[in-house]
Simulated scan of single mutants.
Amino acid sequence: MITVNAMGDNCPIPVIKTKKAMQELTGPETIEVLVDNEIAVQNVSKMAASSGGKVTSEKKGEKEFRIVIEMEGAPSQAAGEEEETACIPDARGNTVVVVSSDRMGEGNDALGKVLIKGFIFAVTQLDTLPKTMLFYNGGATLTCEGSDSLEDLKSLEAQGVEIMTCGTCLDYYGLKEKLAVGTVTNMYSIVETMAGAGRIIRP
């Protein structure tokens, strides 16, 4: 694994450092990029994905983020060229995603669980990320240990998306100690967040 330390670097330096490491590859390799802000996560992730990398990211602590890029080899010369010096603004809009179940739609439960996993992954691919994602009732299980969507949710959190799960729901399901991403919230905050949203998306 190659580590790119871009802690303390302002845009576009994290992108440039990462791009340089990618161009020096001679075969399949994993690149770890360390940055200290959400905008850098967004910019590096966008560039790496456009260059053919498989990208995941997570928040390790306050002002401490880790991006992992799996590459099959060096990108083509044109790939990601535009993003090398581009500093996109905060890619979060005033959208709130509300998830109230661990499955999507009605009918077959197994299919519903496949669909909700696909839905959350699709959120990670939006050009404009949501500001907040709210999880309550059965949806609370998706932010806890064992969830198939944890990797995607951690990636969203690393890019500044606020992940909030209903505390009453976690208590009801006995999951309060198993919350693995985001923070615990209450019904007042849930209502306040939804009331202030520019738009609300429900799977």
Rank of each mutant, 00 (worst) to 15 (best):
M194I: 15
E83R: 04
A140L: 01
C87Q: 08
E157M: 13
T128Q: 05
A197I: 11
A158D: 04
L153P: 03
I201E: 07
E81L: 13
E24F: 07
T85K: 14
G139S: 09
K154V: 04
L150R: 04
A158H: 05
G8L: 05
F121R: 14
E82K: 15
E72C: 00
V97H: 00
K131Y: 07
V98F: 15
E83N: 09
D102T: 04
V161I: 08
L150K: 06
Q23I: 07
V97P: 00
G182H: 01
C144M: 10
S45W: 03
G105T: 07
T56R: 13
G73R: 07
K117C: 11
T26I: 12
S45C: 09
K178S: 11
Y173P: 01
G107Y: 12
K113Q: 15
E64I: 02
I120G: 00
E62K: 15
L179H: 04
G112T: 11
I2F: 11
P203G: 03
M22H: 09
M133C: 02
M187L: 15
E162K: 09
G160T: 04
I190T: 01
G174K: 03
K63T: 03
G196E: 15
K178R: 12
A48L: 06
I190D: 00
E70H: 12
E29V: 02
Q42N: 10
I39W: 02
A74Y: 04
V161A: 07
S76P: 08
A195H: 07
C11P: 06
R202L: 11
V114R: 08
E70P: 05
Y188D: 07
